[in-house]
Design a protein around this nucleic acid. Structure first.
Length: 754
DNA sequence: AGCACGCCGACT
DNA sequence: GTCGGCGTGCTC
């Protein structure tokens, strides 16, 4: 409460899961430093935290406190950037303060914590400690003190924490919070008992390497590339929002189109943003850009240390760079005067942020492009069905590169019907094709998106299936290591010789992974040189490169691999691709599984036949109709713009499109009797009212305290923008007495909201 | 989120 | 008795 009457009142967003913003008074001596976009240190409850100044308010309720300090001389974001952040916060139902925090380089905020300290007379008192505000990355590490007797009254979480710390010696606080839901109180207690000590340390920064770049000139474009560039040029000159899909098959020269379009944008004095799906792809792309352009180029991705990222961010803010290349978070780069945004491989799911502030950078790129008046290019060989749909609706321009550069033909695709021959790894047609290819001196890729030997072990007497005690996923048998592994958490047990439950000897190993395929290939093609590439064979440094070298210098004839072989590498000598089972990915219970299967297989295909031979692709499937119509199936959902913003569980349910999903925890009888609705009853009502777009997953086993609050608030947040969603949720408010997690899928295409 | 308050059950 | 677990409410 302010004594004097502050003349100026500002609106402040705080980086906490709260849907409201807060009003603060500004003491006269700070007024001149106050601008929209600066950070402010504010009293918040009993703490001091960093907030973001987002605007002035003429007057406010009388209960107002004053800010303590202004933390920046210059704003961290402009009004225009704030508009974009506001929009994003509304669209994804996420608190504005957290969205702003996510958009800024990490580790720059100040916050206070109260901490118990022992005073001179031996009593405990509370002391306030201001922390943070550095640009270097730091983390608190806890370590168990040795030879301390265990107090008998330590139980529950505290005990588990201590046991863990004694086992591993030392662990970062973040991990403990995540894995054990440890709270500050737990840490304090262990400390007070003298069981643990902590230290705060800087986490290493990777060194900055300087490279010398040769200068190269633009390449000559082929007909289709030139036509695409021409459309981009025409749109660019208008200097207003224009979205495009650049649909180019693998090896069609999309990057060269990006480069030349960007060159034009730079000539007009505007800037360019290039988003790439993975960090692994950044170095080679950056190298190509640095060779072409002499202007400043900034790189932003999660591999940078906080310090490095902060430096790149400041270079951008100061307009020292004209091109920014980076992963999804680069979308929030403080670039001004954007002329073009490129989203390379727009179908990649790594554009989705699925922790904290959930967003899809591909979608927000369109939104930002609209606000900046920029050309947006979504590039892909296998665009999202959603993007296709937008093209058909005339919402996005279509640029096609149907030919590979140097006019290499595309490989032919043949579907092989595996029905009735389920036990066989190879159909005769595939065996013959591999043999022919071997004889002709060509290389073969065999693709199966499942590693290990057998998918599961089942007892033929009692039906027991080995599964993971932590994840309840079936364990995969790995022959070389003679163990069964959980592919989620890496839990493993030695391979049993009898059923662990009934001691029966008739246990069967069913299903196949790459390890078994490799073995069978060796049996069939005794003279061939065979390699395998999956996570098990590429561990350690250079594991990747070793296998790829083998293909390159021709010491491998047949390579068996998982989706690892589909991404990022070109195999010039490969003239045959065999898909062992398209069904492995087709049967994943997700309404996008057919779309993903198509994308994955297209990518494997794209790797093949880049020499003078066109190459063949053979696809084995139990459901040729399904695969053949995969695009059509996916199109059923094309009208539905679906994108999850809260992921809790992805498994065990049939494909469906949904608007919202409620997950219940602890749906116990006593609670129901008190008048709460059962999950089943709610499901029925929701289905009726939301037109069958609703499914209930659950129950979840997360700590109840976490489920409460946070998610409940999210559904009520700013739903004014979605009246139909708001109405639906509101109807169940107050009825749902049980802790509920609500999963909301946004079904409004951002293009329609602009 | 983090912090305080207030209510219950199992131990010095 | 009182310590610690956890549910609840609040932050301009």
């Amino acid at each position: 409460m302010t004594e004097h009457h502050a003349l100026k009142i500002i609106e402040v967003a705080v980086p906490l899961p709260l849907d409201a913003t807060f009003h603060y008074g500004v003491p006269p001596e700070l007024v001149c430093r106050m601008k929209t976009g600066v950070r402010v240190l504010i009293p918040f409850g009993r703490r001091k935290i960093t907030g973001y100044m987002i605007g002035n308010v003429p007057e406010s309720a009388e209960k107002i406190r004053d800010i303590i300090d202004v933390l920046d001389e210059e704003p961290l974001f402009t009004e225009k950037e704030l508009d974009f952040l506001r929009w994003s916060a509304g669209y994804y139902f996420h608190p504005l303060g957290e969205v702003i925090k996510a958009a800024l380089p990490a580790g720059i905020n100040l916050a206070s914590r109260t901490r118990s300290v022992e005073t001179a007379d031996g009593t405990l008192s509370r002391e306030e400690v201001l922390k943070g505000g550095r640009t270097v990355k730091r983390e608190t590490f806890y370590r168990a003190l040795p030879d301390v007797e265990l107090p008998v009254n330590l139980r529950g979480k505290g005990l588990r924490l201590l046991e863990y710390l004694r086992r591993v010696d030392e662990a970062p606080a973040g991990l403990l919070r995540r894995e054990f839901a440890a709270t500050t109180a737990n840490f304090h207690r262990l400390q007070e008992l003298g069981l643990v000590e902590f230290s705060e340390r800087e986490i290493y920064r990777d060194p900055f390497r300087e490279e010398v770049f040769t200068h190269d000139a633009p390449l000559v474009l082929n007909f289709h590339q030139a036509a695409a560039l021409e459309q981009l040029t025409a749109a660019g000159i208008k200097e207003q929002f224009a979205p495009f899909l650049l649909h180019g098959v693998t090896g069609s020269g999309k990057t060269e189109v990006y480069l030349q379009a960007i060159a034009q944008v730079l000539e007009r004095g505007r800037t360019a943003l290039v988003l790439v799906p993975e960090i692994a792809l950044t170095p080679q792309l950056v190298r190509r850009f640095k060779s072409r352009f002499r202007c400043g180029i900034a790189v932003l991705h999660s591999g940078l240390s906080d310090g490095e990222r902060y430096d790149e961010w400041r270079r951008i803010r100061r307009r020292e760079v004209s091109i920014v290349i980076g992963a999804r978070s680069a979308l929030f780069a403080p670039l001004s005067h954007m002329g073009i945004i490129v989203v390379d491989e727009e179908h990649e799911s790594s554009y989705k942020q699925s922790e904290g502030f959930h967003y899809n950078a591909r979608d927000l790129a369109l939104v930002r492009g609209k606000m900046e008046g920029a050309v947006v290019v979504l590039g892909s060989a296998t665009p999202l069905v959603t993007t296709y749909h937008a093209v058909q609706q005339g919402k996005i321009g279509y640029l096609q590169l149907p030919e590979r550069v140097r006019n290499l033909p595309m490989p032919g695709t043949e579907l092989l019907d595996a029905r009735g021959r389920k036990g066989a790894t190879f159909l005769p047609e595939l065996i013959k094709a591999i043999g022919d290819n071997l004889a002709a001196g060509g290389q073969t890729l065999l693709f199966l998106n499942r590693r290990g030997f057998a998918t599961y072990l089942v007892c033929e007497e009692c039906g027991t299936v080995l599964s993971c005690p932590n994840c309840s996923v079936t364990l995969t048998y790995h022959r070389r290591r003679e163990r069964h592994f959980c592919h989620y958490c890496d839990y493993s047990i030695p391979a049993p010789s009898v059923c662990p439950k009934c001691d029966s000897q008739s246990i069967a190993l069913l299903g196949r992974g790459t390890e078994r395929v490799e073995e069978e290939v060796r049996e069939i093609y005794v003279d061939a040189r065979i390699g395998r590439m999956d996570r098990d064979t590429t561990t350690g440094r250079g594991g990747h490169a070793r296998v790829l070298k083998g293909l390159e210098n021709g010491t491998i004839d047949i390579l068996v691999g998982t989706q690892m072989i589909a991404k990022g590498h070109d195999f010039p000598g490969v003239t045959l691709v065999g898909v062992i089972s398209a069904d492995a990915t087709l049967n994943i219970p997700d309404f996008r599984s057919s779309e993903r299967t198509y994308q994955l297989i297209s990518q494997v295909m794209g790797r093949a036949g880049r020499g003078d031979a066109p190459g063949r692709v053979l696809i084995q499937t139990l459901n040729p109709e399904h695969y053949a119509i995969t695009r059509a199936v996916a199109h059923d959902f094309a009208g539905f713009y679906g994108d999850e913003i809260i992921f809790r569980r992805e498994t065990g349910y049939p494909p469906f499109a949904y608007l919202a999903v409620l997950v219940f925890s602890g749906n116990s009888a006593p609670e129901v009797e008190k008048g709460a609705t059962t999950a089943a009853a709610l499901l029925h009502r929701l289905k009726r009212e939301a037109k069958s777009r609703v499914e209930i997953l659950g129950p979840v086993s997360s700590p109840l305290a976490m489920i409460r609050g946070r998610y409940r608030r999210q559904i009520l947040l700013k739903s004014g923008q979605r009246p139909e969603l708001h109405r639906m949720i509101a109807r169940f408010r107050g009825q749902v007495k049980l802790p509920a997690v609500v999963r909301i899928a946004i079904d409004i295409d951002p293009l329609d909201m602009l």
